[in-house]
C-alpha cells in the first residue's frame, strides 16, 4: 500500500504528472473573479466563500480522469488487480494520493487567495476548516466517478456529468461553513453535515469503486 502511495505521489510531481494543474486553475479563477465583478469591497467579501469553494471544486474535477485512466492504458491496473493488494485498498490509496496532490495544496493556498477576495480574517480560518473537511469527499467521490468511466476513451465529459451532482452536498455545506464563519454566524450545523458527507463517502465509496473497477476490467 505505501509503495503504491509513494509511486502515485512520485508520478504526480514528476514531469507530466499534472501536479499543479488544479492549483494553477484555482489560482486563475480566483484572480480573475475580482476583474470580472468589479472592485466593490462589500460585494467581493460577500461572494468570496462561494467563489473559493467553486474554484476548489472545479480544480479538483480537472485531475480526476487521470486517477485510473493512465494505469489502465499502460496495463498497471490489470497487474494491480492480480496483485496481493485488495482492490478496495488500491482505490482508497489512489483517492488519498489524489487528495494529497490536489486537495491539500488547495487548502494550503486558500488563505492567500481569500485575502485577494478581501475575505475577513476569521472567515479565512473557517474557509480552511471547511476545505479540510470537504476536499477529501471530493477526491473519494471523484475516484468513484473515475472508476465508473475507466474503460472509456475521453471519458472526461461523462465523468464530470456523473460526479458534479454528487459534489453538490459537499459544495452546499462547505460554502455554508465558510460563509457563516465569515459573517460570524454559527458554523456547527453545516460543519457537522459537511463532515458527515465526507465520512460516509470515505467509508462506503472505496467498496463501490472497487466493485465497479472489477466490472470495467472484464
Amino acid at each position: 500500500m505505501t509503495a503504491l502511495l509513494i509511486r502515485d505521489l512520485r508520478l504526480a510531481v514528476r514531469a507530466g504528472g499534472g501536479f499543479g494543474l488544479g492549483l494553477a486553475f484555482f489560482l486563475i479563477v480566483v484572480v480573475l473573479v475580482p476583474f470580472a465583478v468589479g472592485p466593490a469591497m462589500g460585494l467581493l467579501e460577500r461572494i468570496a466563500p462561494g467563489v473559493l469553494w467553486i474554484g476548489a471544486l472545479l480544480a479538483c474535477l480537472l485531475s480526476l480522469d487521470r486517477i485510473f485512466a493512465l494505469d489502465r492504458e499502460d496495463g498497471s491496473l490489470d497487474l494491480l488487480a492480480v496483485s496481493p493488494l485488495p482492490l478496495e485498498g488500491v482505490v482508497a490509496v489512489k483517492a488519498l494520493a489524489h487528495w494529497l496532490t490536489t486537495g491539500l495544496p488547495l487548502v494550503a493556498v486558500a488563505p492567500v487567495l481569500g485575502l485577494l477576495l478581501s475575505l475577513p480574517g476569521k472567515g479565512v480560518i473557517w474557509l480552511v476548516v471547511s476545505l479540510l473537511a470537504g476536499t477529501p469527499a471530493l477526491s473519494v467521490i471523484g475516484t468513484f466517478g473515475a472508476a465508473l468511466t475507466v474503460g472509456l476513451k475521453r471519458g472526461g465529459l461523462l465523468l464530470s456529468l456523473l460526479v458534479l451532482p454528487l459534489y453538490v452536498p459537499t459544495l452546499i455545506f462547505g460554502a455554508e461553513v465558510a460563509r457563516a464563519g465569515a459573517t460570524g454566524l454559527d458554523t456547527a450545523t453545516p460543519l457537522v453535515l459537511l463532515a458527515a458527507v465526507t465520512c460516509v463517502a470515505v467509508a462506503l465509496l472505496p467498496f463501490a469503486s472497487a466493485a465497479v473497477l472489477r466490472m470495467n476490467l472484464r
Binding site: 505505501t2 509503495a3 512520485r10 508520478l11 499502460d74 496495463g75 498497471s76 496483485s83
Partner: peptide, 23 residues
Amino acid sequence: GHADGIKAALSVAENLMFWARVH
C-alpha cells in the same frame, strides 16, 4: 499481458522496485 505496466516517468529500478514491494 500485452501491456507491461511501466511508468515512463519512473526509472527502471523504481518501476521494478514498486512491483517488488507490492508483492
